[in-house]
Nucleic acid binder design. Structure first.
Lengths: 342, 342
DNA sequence: TTGTACGCGTTATCAC
DNA sequence: GTGATAACGCGTACAA
């Protein structure tokens, strides 16, 4: 693979002159510039970004660590992040932690070693180790989607509590008095926040029994399993709230298997919308998170930190984006008024 | 950020000794090793992969360029590729071409500049420019999912013709005599192959009119639009074959909007399955591609090329994986026999 | 067992 | 307007 010296020899100039032409830094006479450009084209020279990075200490690369890139929510976040990064002339590396802290830490280590310019992290569990590692290594970091207990990092997330509150209020207004919440692992803030928001809505209604809460994983299998548990309880709930999209799908599968009709027998509401392109028949009532925008905003915040000088600078920022209530058939008939068009 | 020299100073040894400890290359006395390891831990040293790559000419990184990472098919391919890469100690960079050749070429240029060890490419359109660029730059390349017209590259793909043939045969066996095929852009081999396979099945049945063919984009909107066109034709088709998952979903939406029942009024079959985790009610009859395995195999082939010495070595390989026919409700009742369980 | 010299490809600094 | 020199952080080749 040709180097800058090869180009220089062919054009009869020095390496630094080629560098000036390539980067448009410093003065070069028109004739020399032409000669250099021709040489570049002839031998197909492409500057070596590795060498460049070694000098500049910038890789123009940022990384996004998600817990599951199979989840369309994270795919959409990634897409938003990539578009924003691309606009800024940066590449985006996507990594999967599989909701495992060990994997997450392994990736952070690799990424720091590769000297990416910054990391966007959807923390598995608390994420404390990974966050501490970035902090110690001076690696710019933005936490995405999940609140950080100690608030000791920049965060971009959606309003989980608010969204869950709205869903709770909706179900209450539809007359449900016995409900259950199916959520993710205990340590995950989004899992807890959605429970909290829902609980508040129920409490605000007054006189209702607090919803029973089930903890599991954010997976379809876990949703199926928890749905069976929930329906076995007495008094049997008339509405289920699934705290993420995969859980909701698992719930629907379980109910289908059990011959329970939705929404006639049991109403269902979920968190995270599924992209329209992925759904044969829009059916689920959800609190939709602005996934694409979350990706964009995360990159924007990270870039701001990068250019805003090194150190901590300002205190940590927390960007909280609103969710959107989308009412469909799964929550039952709201007296005909709120129906979203198919 | 500390360097190898910092560690060396702190441990009272030379840089190369630290290098030997870190890479376990060459002999180091137990005591020195201990001193060095302590120094590494104390100052939190992480080897600089950029400098390492500059010397070794390897980045331990490969890239995957897909046309749309929002599509669950490609997400699954990516997941398979990432797992395989991770097992081999490599990182995977994912890029979106958005089915645009200009973007694709831009990414190839960036990736060659960054000296990734190899590229997995789902070509947008013919992909001729990108493939030529890789060839010229000596960048190892594996083409994924799409056949390459001149066969001048390693390829891993599914058997589009075979899968489409099976779907065609199924619909014929269900009694359909007037059918339409909705596919992607003309230049895309998968789009053409699926038409071809379907056509052959119809021709093989004998005495049937050849299916009408519509070309569009591999998007939900295009599927909706082509479905409307197809149903306006006379004689009106009784079965539609959508050559990709997004197209199929667009078709279902259009039919729903038009009040056409599936499968009672019109049967529908598609290509590419949707992951179970993403589907509220499994409904579509499809030829499913082994997406995860395609990702794995692509990486395996690339790694084989990397270790199998530089030059062309052997002639180009073509790995063709079989699709799987999954019969569900959308294709109509096959006399009760073939129904897949929900 | 440990260390010295050098080069990977690029660019910042300073000179001409 | 152009070029020589050095340095980024690491690992190979060769000594000691």
């Amino acid at each position: 693979m040709p180097t800058i010296v090869d180009v220089a020899n062919r054009a009869g100039v020095s390496a630094i002159t080629v560098s000036r032409v390539v980067n448009d830094s410093g003065p070069v006479s028109t004739q020399v510039r032409a000669r250099v450009e021709r040489a570049i084209a002839e031998i197909g020279y492409l500057p070596n970004a590795v060498a460049r990075s070694l000098r500049s200490k910038r890789t123009d690369t940022i990384a996004l660590i998600v817990t599951d890139m199979t989840n369309p929510f994270f795919t959409t976040v990634a897409r938003g992040a990539e578009d924003a990064a691309s606009d800024a002339g940066m590449m985006l590396i996507i990594c999967n932690s599989d909701e495992r802290e060990a994997e997450e830490v392994r990736y952070v280590r690799m990424l720091v070693g590769r000297r990416v310019d910054g990391i966007l992290l959807v923390p598995a569990g608390g994420g404390a180790t990974a966050i501490g590692l970035c902090r110690k290594q001076g690696m710019p970091l933005v936490v995405v989607d999940r609140r950080v207990p100690g608030h000791d990092a920049d965060v971009v997330r959606a309003d989980s509590r608010g969204g869950a509150f709205e869903l709770g209020r909706l179900l209450v207004s539809l007359g449900h008095r016995t409900m259950a919440v199916l959520t993710g692992p205990r340590a995950v803030p989004t899992a807890d926040d959605r429970v909290l928001g829902f609980r508040r809505a129920v409490a605000a209604a007054g006189g209702l029994r607090p919803p029973r809460v089930y903890h599991g994983a954010f997976t379809i299998d876990s949703g199926r399993e928890m749905a069976r548990l929930a329906l076995a309880a007495r008094p049997r709930p008339t509405a289920l709230f699934a705290a993420n999209n995969f859980l909701a799908i698992g719930v629907l599968h379980a109910l289908d298997e059990m011959g329970v009709r939705v929404p006639e027998d049991v109403a269902v509401a979920g968190f995270d919308d599924l992209p329209p392109a992925m759904v044969t028949f829009p059916f689920l009532t959800v609190a939709a998170q602005p996934a694409y925008e979350m990706g964009q905003r995360s990159v924007a915040l990270l870039l701001a930190r990068l250019s805003g000088g090194p150190g901590p600078g300002q205190p940590y920022a927390e960007v909280v984006l609103p969710t959107q209530l989308v009412v469909r058939r799964s929550s039952g008939d709201p007296r005909g008024a709120l129906h979203a068009p198919l």
